[in-house]
């Protein structure tokens, strides 16, 4: 006798797998990125044009540090989520698809960590 409810036996078996989580998180991260874009633009513009000391002072100001760290976490997550959808849409072979999604997720995790480490390193030179 199966004591599990009918719902429990079918959860996760549909084509959507875990359902709306991926779609929902894409939206949540998108909303978060709208205001944080201002910090990205400011940082990029300073990095390309301003003297070293100015950019360093700007980035190591606590509020700016928090916003850039938040941007890094959310943006790299948002990129990985988006690229996963693109891969799932255009790669039909199940094996290559899974490997590509893993590769994208791990790459952006790694890149995000590298960016975060760089931010923490700037705090020690300032």
């Amino acid at each position: 006798m199966d004591l599990r409810s009918p719902l429990a036996t079918v959860r996760g078996l549909g084509s959507a797998k875990t359902g709306t989580t991926h779609w929902w998180m894409q939206r949540v991260s998108a909303v978060a990125l709208v205001p944080l874009t201002l910090w990205l633009i400011t940082f990029l513009d300073m990095s390309l044009n301003a003297p070293f000391a100015d950019t360093l002072t700007w980035l190591t100001t606590p509020f700016n540090t928090v916003c850039i760290v938040a941007w890094i976490i959310v943006a790299f997550y948002h990129a990985a989520l988006g690229l996963q959808v693109v891969i799932e849409d255009y790669i039909a072979a199940e094996g290559i698809k899974i490997i590509a999604v893993w590769a994208v997720n791990l790459s952006f995790l790694f890149l995000g960590l590298a960016a975060l480490l760089a931010v923490f390193r700037t705090l020690t030179i300032g």
Binding site: A79, G82, F108
Partner: peptide
Amino acid sequence: GVMLSGGLLFFVYIISALAGGADSYA
């Protein structure tokens, strides 16, 4: 979206250059 994701590589390079000090920044 795909191109911006690629652009994140530039961001990692830029912020790492800043963390590396005045010389790598220049």
